[in-house]
């Protein structure tokens, strides 16, 4: 039933190859890229500062920040 609802002017068009971010994740990430987890497909997504929040595989709109594994240098890291 819902297929008849959409008016013709704004019908969905499948993404054309090359225009989207798909495949970009294989390119070497520039320095300063942070990696996040996609909430939908769980893939690691590299996002540079100022880039839109979008999973590069599935286009999902929520990313989770990962628990860091890097050594944190700040001295006051110890709780309390």
């Amino acid at each position: 039933m819902s297929s008849t609802t959409g008016s013709q002017r704004e019908a969905y068009q499948p993404p054309s190859v090359g225009s989207s971010g798909v495949g970009r994740s294989y390119a070497p990430a520039p320095a300063g890229t942070m990696f996040y987890l996609c909430a939908e497909c769980g893939v690691k997504v590299g996002i540079n500062k100022g880039e839109p929040i979008r999973c590069k595989e599935c286009g999902h709109r929520i990313l989770y920040k990962q628990r860091t594994t890097r050594y944190l240098k700040s001295k006051s890291i110890v709780p309390g």
């Binding site: 996002i47 929040i53 709109r61």
Partner: peptide, 13 residues
């Protein structure tokens, strides 16, 4: 959570 915007606009977070 990093919340992306809805719609096709390429806005940053």
């Amino acid at each position: 959570r990093l919340l992306g915007s809805e719609g096709g606009d390429n806005k940053p977070m």
